[in-house]
């Protein structure tokens, strides 16, 4: 059963993403409200994929990605960023830090589900 961690400060987006992800058979969703909360979940649960917002209080998504990539225990977890920042340079920056995919908001649920299933099955290329 893959554990997917949704990191979002907005309850609306958190619920929306979780709602969509729960449609993937056997998937289990964990929620975190910011980067610090996400790190706590990472140390307490086995996480298979992270979906994270960029703009969050306490610790933003980019800082979270760099910390995850710097930790040997978590460095291979696929990370999908969802954000209102739609500019190409924002995308490049997130990918350079270590994000695997970048989805600008408003997100297309089908696109997100396609990405999640491809990363979970290991056919992301």
């Amino acid at each position: 059963m893959p554990n997917i961690l949704v990191v979002e400060d907005s309850p609306t987006m958190r619920q929306l993403i979780s709602f969509a992800i729960k449609r993937i058979p056997n998937s289990h969703v964990l929620e975190a409200t910011d980067g610090v909360d996400a790190l706590k979940k990472l140390s307490s649960d086995k996480i298979d994929l992270i979906i994270a917002d960029i703009n969050m209080p306490v610790m933003d998504g980019l800082k979270l990605v760099s910390l995850v990539r710097g930790n040997p225990a978590f460095k291979n977890i696929p990370i999908i960023m969802v954000t209102t920042e739609g500019a190409e340079e924002d995308r490049k920056r997130a990918i350079a830090i270590g994000a695997n995919a970048y989805l600008p908001k408003p997100i297309q649920t089908q696109e997100l589900l396609k990405l999640v299933t491809s990363y979970l099955s290991g056919n992301s290329d």
Binding site: S10, P11, T12, M13, L16, T84, K105, P106
Partner: peptide, 14 residues
């Protein structure tokens, strides 16, 4: 705040 979130995240207004 929720209305703001909906308009930003679901509609895509800046």
């Amino acid at each position: 705040r929720i209305v703001l979130e909906i308009v930003i995240n679901l509609i895509g207004a800046e």
